[in-house]
Nucleic acid binder design. Structure first.
Lengths: 208, 208
DNA sequence: TTTGTTATGTGATCGTAGTCACTGAAACTG
DNA sequence: CAGTTTCAGTGACTACGATCACATAACAAA
């Protein structure tokens, strides 16, 4: 686990050692569920490799995309739920092969107390995710579907650091809790404005 | 400030003493703004008395009700923003006369380090608010206006611990970023189902 | 190349909610 | 009490987005 220090450069040596001692590495395949609604957390998760997509789940199986976790991120929910031993109403799915470090919840207190960087890290995790949730609320509270779609695409391009994303209209519709036809039509509109270009399974950014 | 211990019974004596030493009590009148979009936080806020209504603000002045803060709550945003010295995009308005204890941000670290109850308190604050935000997302992502309205009314009844709330249809429409006519019509529908009763400036719970 | 599957395009229809214009009713003010 | 303001009710119209029913296009596998 020599890579831990490179994934979390802000952590000091003693914290790294402690994490190596108490943590356990778990691997997931693309498509695997890391978190599932109603599941108990027995540990917190730190993402070492890969990308995890987090959704909010509705009562009837609807889903709404919240944000991605990647290398170096912690799952805010797993810290929250872990410290309270509560259930999750969030779905986390690996969108690439994923490696995570799991920290049993009984160590959270001492980590928090003994390592200043850890507590900063946890606070920073909360802060970031809190703000992302607020942004999501902005989108769905104040904006119409075409603006939500634009915001969604921007986030994908930004996060994946690519001018092209591989995704179907149906997947987008699912992420936005909308329907394929609507998304197709709106994508067409964006294309006709020369802001994106569309081909099967792919959308490319022009000027978003 | 003999009351601090009664408002925060989970805090130990030394922490209470420290808070009394570094904190400052500020009072607001009903209707005053405690937080305003774009404002810098220089301190964290603990609510000692009264009720504060928190909104998310849209780009064009729209607003969306998030949650209430009351006696014994901390403003999660003020902790977040304080620790990073960033700006807020949240609006906090006193809905009753309000008394808050302000903690200059430079003390946050030492409080966190020296007082275990404080760090639990901060984490619990985050956890609670995080979950409230997720619930808000549920409502606006998965539910239609009549369901949002029902959820809104339930929250008001629950939070205010009263069978009757004093509010105009216009205020509800603002809180839900909708329009008065729509809210009026939906309230009528709820009344015709004998789930609420309506009179001028008042809505009473029957079976929500 | 044929066949099957998955992804996308498109018209028609419908319901929800936002808007406009107006009426009516209740409370407040002098 | 008359006049004014604030709050609520209602019909007409419109737009957005969900849904249905297909048609077509791209790709994959045989």
């Amino acid at each position: 686990m020599q890579s831990l220090k490179s994934i979390f450069p802000q952590f000091g040596g003693p914290l790294i050692d402690q994490l190596e001692k108490i943590g356990q590495v778990v691997e997931f395949k693309e498509g695997d569920m890391l978190l599932r609604t109603g599941q108990y957390f027995k540990q917190s998760l730190l993402v070492l490799e890969g990308r995890v997509k987090l959704y909010r789940e509705g009562e009837n199986g609807e889903e709404f995309f919240l944000y991605y976790l990647e290398r170096g991120n912690a799952c805010a929910l797993s810290i929250i739920c872990a410290t309270r031993n509560e259930t999750s109403e969030i779905k986390g799915q690996a969108v690439t092969p994923v490696k995570v470090l799991t920290i049993p919840l009984q160590f959270m207190d001492s980590l928090m107390k003994d390592y200043r960087e850890w507590y900063f890290f946890v606070l920073e995790t909360y802060r970031t995710r809190f703000e992302e949730l607020l942004q999501v609320i902005d989108q769905i509270a104040f904006h119409s579907m075409d603006e939500k779609l634009e915001f969604y695409l921007k986030r994908q391009f930004d996060f994946l650091k690519s001018k092209t994303i591989s995704i179907t209209h149906q997947q987008i519709a699912d992420d936005l809790n909308s329907s394929r036809e609507v998304i197709s039509r709106l994508l067409k509109k964006l294309e006709s404005q020369h802001r994106i270009s569309i081909s099967r399974n792919e959308i490319s950014q022009i000027s978003l």
